[in-house]
Computed example of a mutant assay.
Amino acid sequence: MSNPVYLALDLPRLEDAKALATRVKAHVGGIKLGLEFFCAHGHHGVHEIAHVGLPIFLDLKLHDIPNTVAGAMQSIHVLEPAIVTVHASGGRAMMEDAKAAAGEHCKVVGVTLLTSLDERDLARTGVQGSAHDQVMRLAELSEAAGLDGIVCSGHEVAAVHKQWKHGFFVVPGLRLPEGKIGDQKRVVTPRKARDDGASVLVVGRPISRAEDPVTAARAIEATL
């Protein structure tokens, strides 16, 4: 992949989202469309963004019984996504069925631990151990289930890459050194994540909310 940066495009208005994608398309490698975008705009919205000409990453974080997740995967075949996410905590059977139902050229990756969560949040949900331990456990389960890779923070990607040599690793929650972290708790720079083995770098607000999105995208591209 020549440019690993995927722009997280979760603007509320479809026209604004398409305009931004068109503006920065020369400086990003793909577009990530999340749950907010998909619920607001559905298949039509995805098709409209696909017309920009970049690969589409559907970050839907599917999490349900295996049969339901498989059905959901089949329903988005027509959108031809390059990447789709499922929650690794849904279990091995769910992940196996998700991968089996995915399109031939679609990478299915397991979300391990949201970058908005830390150890305190884990403890409150009954999960013992560190965030790192939880990510490593779910990475191992995702590999065993036959997924292409996982989503994890930049804090864990080096360790996961060492354990899973040929995995496909998506790292969100990235910020430039001088950037605000917002609601993220475990962030690193795009350069650091890439050096540690990230395959895709998801960048949202540092580009989408920048005064000049093109300049911001070019600045991130230049660090890589």
Rank of each mutant, 00 (worst) to 15 (best):
N3I: 02
V5G: 05
Y6H: 14
D16E: 08
R23C: 01
A26R: 13
H27P: 07
G29H: 07
I31R: 04
K32G: 12
K32E: 12
E36I: 12
G45E: 09
G45I: 03
I49H: 04
I49E: 11
A50Y: 05
F57S: 11
D59P: 06
H63G: 00
P66V: 05
G71D: 03
A82K: 15
R92D: 13
A93G: 10
A101D: 09
E104D: 12
K107F: 14
K107N: 12
V109H: 00
V111F: 06
V111K: 00
L114P: 10
S116N: 02
D121Q: 09
D121L: 06
R124P: 00
G126M: 04
V127N: 13
R137H: 13
A139N: 08
L141F: 03
E143G: 04
A145S: 13
L147G: 08
D148C: 10
C152N: 10
S153L: 06
V160N: 01
H161N: 15
K162W: 00
H166R: 13
G167A: 10
F168N: 12
F168G: 12
V170Q: 06
V171M: 04
G173A: 12
G173C: 09
L174Y: 00
R175Y: 07
E178C: 02
D183G: 07
Q184T: 05
Q184K: 05
K185N: 05
D195N: 15
D196I: 02
D196S: 08
I207Y: 01
S208T: 15
E211D: 05
V214M: 04
A217D: 00
R218A: 12
R218H: 11
A222S: 13
L224I: 11
